[in-house]
Amino acid sequence: MLLPSFVFIIIVTGFPLLYSLYVSFTPYELLKPNSLIFELPKALNNYTRLLNDPVFWKSLGNTIIFLTVTVNLEYFLALGLSQLLAQVTRGQAIMRTMLMIPMMFAPILVGFQFRWFFNSNLGLVNNALVSLGIIGEQTRIAWLVDEPLGMICIIIATIWMNLPVMTIILLAGTLSLPQETYEAADVDGASAWQKFRFITLPLLAPFTYIALTIRSLDVARAFDIVRIMTDGGPARRTELIWTYAGRLAIEDTKFGLGSAMSWITVIISVGFTVYLFRQLVKSRIVE
């Protein structure tokens, strides 16, 4: 039963990963075919270089902040929204479809649009604030530049686009919870809050961890939206692991160095997911 899945995954991600593992031990540059040579004494050059690169650490730190804030906010918003939608008696189908509309735009379009919304001179956000008299003509906010506004803006765009993922998982999870437990609680006269706190939340835990894990991995891979909105700038204030790695590997043609960075990131991500996975297993035991 597992075979088909693993065939796909091994071909599509296994080969590239092994290839980039090999390349990460070489000084390979894309437009210099002769640089794809493995020499044992120099094998770790890319890795030592990265570990001494302040930009790498900065981008790693930014990624962790970005990931933590985005995933947590998404979780709380999605939890609230999914519980609200589960209670809705009329038009739930339309609401669910509406909810998913942000996901129907390509991330690159979302990036372009949000970059434009947050443009300081001509963007919608500042102009709305000026019209409302909240800020003056001369005190326009540099949304995508100031610290930490730039980070907040890319988080807003990311959450806007991906909130449906977590919401739908939690909604589907909520809907699959056994009704009899709630009926029993009703009989005991439990309040809505008590039902949420002592029935929904614990029973939903497996779904929560699945959603958190999936979203963490996806947010850690964030690329398209951020690349277009700020491309890691200005002055690396929003530089994330993959905007930096992508620029190094492709634009700067330093594919060996970029691959080494990919691998460091993959190892960190795996460590992180193992932690979440343990939590998931624990939540099942509680259940």
Binding site: S120, N121, V145, G150, P234
Partner: peptide, 11 residues
């Protein structure tokens, strides 16, 4: 402009 460090040609 306030957001000059994030402007490219179109902006």
């Amino acid at each position: 402009a306030e957001d000059t460090p994030n402007l490219v040609w179109d902006g």
